[in-house]
C-alpha cells in the first residue's frame, strides 16, 4: 500500500519534471510543476502511513490510552498541509508572473525570455 502510493508519487514527480523541463510553454511548465508537486505531497503522506492504523484524531474510535498504537504518524500530515499551501502560493505567483510576462512580450515561450544571459 505504502509502496504503491510512493511509486505513484515518484512517477508523478518524474512525469511532472519531464513536462516542466521539455515544454517550452510557460503555462504548461506551471501545470507540470503542479503535477510534480502533487507527487511530492503523495510521497510525503505515504511516509507517515502505517498499515492497519487510523487517522490521528482522538474520538470514540481511538481511545486516549491506545492512541500510540492505533494512530498513524500525524507529523507528515501536518507537514503536507504546509507543503500544499506553500506549493499553491508559488503556483499562484508563477501564474501571475506568466500573465505579466505574456503582457511584456506577447508570448509564453520560455526560451524567448533570455535577454539576461552569459
Amino acid at each position: 500500500m505504502v509502496i504503491i502510493a510512493m511509486v505513484t508519487g515518484f512517477i508523478l514527480i518524474l512525469m511532472g519534471l519531464y513536462g516542466a523541463l521539455t515544454n517550452t510553454n510557460i503555462l504548461r511548465m506551471i501545470v507540470s510543476f503542479s503535477v510534480a508537486n502533487t507527487g511530492v505531497n503523495i510521497v510525503l503522506v505515504s511516509v507517515g502511513y502505517m498499515h492497519g492504523r487510523t487517522a490521528p484524531i482522538l474520538d470514540n474510535a481511538v481511545p486516549l490510552a491506545e492512541a500510540s498504537t492505533r494512530i498513524i504518524d500525524p507529523v507528515p500530515q501536518a507537514l503536507v498541509l504546509t507543503a500544499i499551501v506553500i506549493g499553491l502560493g508559488i503556483t499562484t505567483l508563477m501564474l501571475a508572473y506568466a500573465y505579466k510576462l505574456y503582457e511584456t512580450k506577447g508570448t509564453l515561450d520560455i526560451s524567448k525570455f533570455s535577454e539576461l544571459k552569459w
Binding site: 482522538l58 474520538d59 492512541a67 500525524p74 500530515q77
Partner: peptide
C-alpha cells in the same frame, strides 16, 4: 500521541 490530549486538549492531533 501520548501528550497531545492532556497538554493541548485537541482531539485532532494534526
Amino acid at each position: 500521541a501520548e501528550h497531545t490530549a492532556q497538554d493541548i486538549g485537541a482531539s485532532n492531533i494534526v
